[in-house]
């Protein structure tokens, strides 16, 4: 018997999903569903937009209005949706390649505009869909099918990138820390402005195998043992934080939201010609 959550938010007739056994994306999709459920959002007013990648297939499985777009462009599509219908709850699910490589430009500009969209990144540090090439978040020295001698690129901190670009809510969760991640997604949705929740996923099929880091259990155990809550991290030294992943809320500020500001433009333009 599927749980009430699955029954309500997952399109069961479109299962089985395409994800590998042990993939972290399914857990994170459930976290998104749980967050929407706990906030009791009107499902018909939720618009979920994704790009292309293993992570982005979540859009087809979730029972909202869903738009599965082109690789990297989910945020730009989402901006069109939000500007045309500011009353909708606009969510984006995308992979690390989607959001930080091909779609990096859209991420920083949407963050700069502070448009009220919530982006949930399923970050598995690899290109899953295309078979394990390195991504902009693959750690230096790790292996991938296009980094056979070790990756010499330096990785992005996506949450930090979003914050520096102007996002007014940023946070990090993981596939392992479900309760925390649900709370962060909820906060992101409630936050008025551009919010980004970077979620560490796991890709046992490519990342785990290529880097001899084991399967899903080992990768999730790593998350369990190496994450530090942001409150605690604030009191730790750089050396103490070496090799750790900081999770929890990372930043929040209150600044004018883009569609609110545009509404003022409409009032102004209409006033001049009233």
């Amino acid at each position: 018997m599927p749980s009430k959550l699955i029954e309500k938010y997952i399109r069961e007739d479109h299962l089985p999903h395409i994800w590998c056994p042990g993939c972290g994306h399914g857990i994170l999709m459930r976290d998104v569903a749980e967050a929407v459920s706990e906030l009791d959002l009107d499902q018909e007013k939720v618009f979920l937009i994704s790009g292309i990648g293993c992570s982005s297939r979540a859009a087809g499985y979730m029972d909202f209005n869903t738009l599965h777009t082109t690789h990297g462009r989910a945020i730009a599509f989402a901006e069109g949706v939000k500007l045309a219908r500011p009353d909708l709850n606009v969510l984006v699910i995308a992979g690390d390649g989607d959001i930080a490589a091909i779609g990096g430009n859209h991420l920083i500009h949407a963050a700069r505009r502070n448009i009220d969209i919530t982006v949930v990144v399923f970050n598995n540090d690899i290109y899953g869909m295309t078979g394990g090439q390195f991504s902009p978040t693959t750690p230096t020295g790790d292996f991938a099918t296009t980094a056979p001698y070790g990756n010499i690129d330096r990785p992005f901190d996506i949450a930090k990138l979003a914050e520096a670009s102007g996002a007014t809510y940023t946070a990090r969760g993981t596939a392992y820390h479900a309760q925390l991640t649900i709370k962060l997604i909820k906060e992101g949705i409630l936050h008025r402005g551009f919010s980004l929740i970077e979620c560490a996923s796991v890709c046992p099929t490519y990342y785990g195998r290529k880097n001899k880091k084991g399967g899903s259990v080992e990768l999730m155990t790593w998350q369990k043992d190496n994450c530090v809550l942001s409150e605690k991290a604030a009191k730790m030294t750089k050396e103490e934080l070496e090799g750790k992943l900081v999770i929890g809320k990372l930043s929040e500020t209150d600044l004018p939201e883009y569609t609110d500001e545009y509404k003022k433009i409409i009032d102004k333009a209409r006033g001049y010609h009233g």
Binding site: E79, G80, A84, Y262, I266, R270
Partner: peptide, 28 residues
Amino acid sequence: PQVGGTFIQMEDEISSMAAVIGAAVTGA
């Protein structure tokens, strides 16, 4: 804005096309 519509200058033409489709999906 004079007719209650929305204009946005995007960061490039790729995102412009994407935003246009996103808006059109909602019926605009």
